[in-house]
Design a protein around this nucleic acid. Structure first.
Ligand SMILES: [Mn+2]
Ligand SMILES: [Mn+2]
Ligand SMILES: [Zn+2]
Ligand SMILES: [Zn+2]
Lengths: 134, 134
DNA sequence: AACATAAATGCAACGTAGTTGCATTTAAAA
DNA sequence: TTTTAAATGCAACTACGTTGCATTTATGTT
């Protein structure tokens, strides 16, 4: 279960091993930061149809291969890996300078106290600031 | 400074006291939850032009009369009141059932530890769950 | 009160992110 | 090899919001 090939990942999720998906997966694995639709199109030299790419991003997300990030920029970002169950222990750092979106493992789960009668299912945090490269 | 009329609020911010703004302000003050563009149009019986409404939402936001909320639904919500400086002590609760967006005062400021070299400017949190009415 | 001026409004056209319908192709199973 | 459902590509479409521009209105000055 440690070293899975692209094909194995897709097979495990019940997704057909297509050219587009293999290329997409290849790029996701070697890119460190969250990617936008445009980032991916650029990386893949615009060889993939728009709707095909969007549909695959949705499939990958549903299969838990990637997760979708709302960084408040107006366009979604996508990063490799599934969100932890409940989404509690994951946050995203958005650099105000270079716009890079980093996935952050949150060591201490945030404890937000909500009013009586409110039931928390999931906490999603966006941290804005300046990244180590800027 | 306690009880300000709509007109006084606008005057204080250097905004002209127009029909549209008075109506908009009237609705913001009596609605408890965050409102979408569509909510507001409905409340105002579609009497306001789309661009006028959007422009006023932006003006109100810049003047600190309201704040804009990204609830990850794809459309912005707007709520009365300015965000606290730095945006640290405010979070939003989104009900997964009725979609209502609540402003939450966060008592204990969230402490997220970011990696070395990262500088946090601002933390924005969306809590998803079930509200007390659902 | 009448005038001047800048700001606000309304309308239409535009932009961008993402979605959908449908005909064609392709992966994979029989 | 044949079959079948899933994936692809293309074009058209939707939703949310923005922009340019002519007209109107609020407000300050005479
Ligand atoms: Mn992440
Ligand atoms: Mn709020
Ligand atoms: Zn940066
Ligand atoms: Zn609810």
């Amino acid at each position: 279960m440690e070293k899975m090939s692209f094909g194995q990942i897709l097979e495990e999720k019940g997704l057909k091993k297509t050219k587009v998906r293999m290329a997409l997966l290849h790029h996701f694995l070697q890119l460190k930061h969250a990617q936008s639709y445009n980032d991916l199109q650029l990386a893949l030299k615009n060889e993939i149809d728009k709707s095909t790419l969007y549909r695959n991003l949705t499939s990958f997300e549903q299969a838990g291969i990637i997760h979708r990030i709302n960084d408040h920029s107006g366009t979604s970002k996508y990063a490799f890996g599934e969100l932890p169950k409940g989404g509690q222990d994951h946050a995203h750092f958005v650099c105000e300078n270079c716009e890079t979106v980093y996935c952050m493992e949150v060591s201490t789960p945030l404890q937000l106290n909500v009013p009586k009668g409110f039931k928390t299912k999931n906490v999603q945090t966006i941290i804005k600031g300046i990244c180590s490269k800027c």
